[in-house]
Computed example of a mutant assay.
Amino acid sequence: MADRPATVADVHEIAAGMPHVSRIEGSKAGNAVYQVGGKSFVFFRTPRSDAVDPDTGERYADVIVIWVESEADKLALTQDPASPFFTTSHFDGHPSVLIRQSRLGEIGLTELRELIQDAWLGRASKRRAERWLAGQSG
């Protein structure tokens, strides 16, 4: 089956489908935050002054934050200016990347699934991560 462009619904489905996940509303705006063991691994961010349209200065209202394993992973996703992934100075030293909902279609469902699963693995307890990984082989 061919890969298809990722969607916002896919973000919710994949994140919510991981084991031991809680979805909470992260702000008065009701933005979804997905957590495992009380640790966020994907969240929908409220508009902030550090992520703005360079032409209009308007705050992006559609930013999703996804945890990554390392600074090297973050750099690999954000260093190409054409990449839909980006970061801001607010996230310097923080193991996460940002992507706008409006640009999710620039990545495939397979890549999105891998990113979210890796985000979950990076935040889950060692035991939960090992149990989930063991269930994936075979």
Rank of each mutant, 00 (worst) to 15 (best):
T7K: 03
V8Y: 12
D10P: 11
H12V: 07
H12D: 15
H12P: 07
E13G: 09
I14M: 01
A15S: 13
A15N: 09
P19C: 11
H20Y: 07
V21W: 11
R23H: 00
R23I: 14
I24A: 09
I24N: 02
I24M: 08
I24R: 07
E25A: 03
G26S: 08
K28W: 06
K28A: 13
K28R: 14
K28T: 15
A29K: 12
A29R: 13
G30I: 08
G30D: 06
A32I: 02
Y34V: 12
Y34P: 09
Q35V: 12
G37H: 14
G38M: 06
K39C: 01
S40M: 15
F41R: 08
V42I: 05
V42E: 07
F44E: 10
R45S: 11
R45T: 01
R45F: 04
T46R: 08
P47D: 04
P47R: 06
P47G: 04
S49C: 00
D50F: 15
A51M: 02
A51I: 12
A51C: 11
V52M: 11
D53C: 02
D53F: 02
D55W: 04
D55R: 14
R59I: 02
Y60E: 05
A61P: 01
A61M: 07
D62A: 05
V63M: 00
I64F: 09
I64K: 04
I64T: 10
I64V: 15
V65I: 03
W67V: 12
W67N: 15
V68C: 10
E69D: 15
E71P: 00
E71T: 10
A72G: 00
D73N: 02
K74S: 03
L77M: 14
L77E: 00
L77A: 01
T78F: 03
D80S: 10
D80I: 09
A82I: 06
A82K: 15
A82F: 08
S83M: 02
S83L: 05
F85S: 00
T87P: 02
T88A: 05
T88C: 12
T88M: 13
S89G: 06
H90V: 03
F91V: 13
D92R: 15
D92C: 04
G93D: 09
P95V: 06
P95C: 08
P95K: 14
P95N: 14
V97M: 04
L98K: 07
R100N: 06
R100V: 03
S102L: 13
L104A: 06
E106Y: 12
I107H: 11
I107S: 10
G108S: 03
G108M: 01
G108F: 07
L109F: 08
L109D: 13
T110N: 14
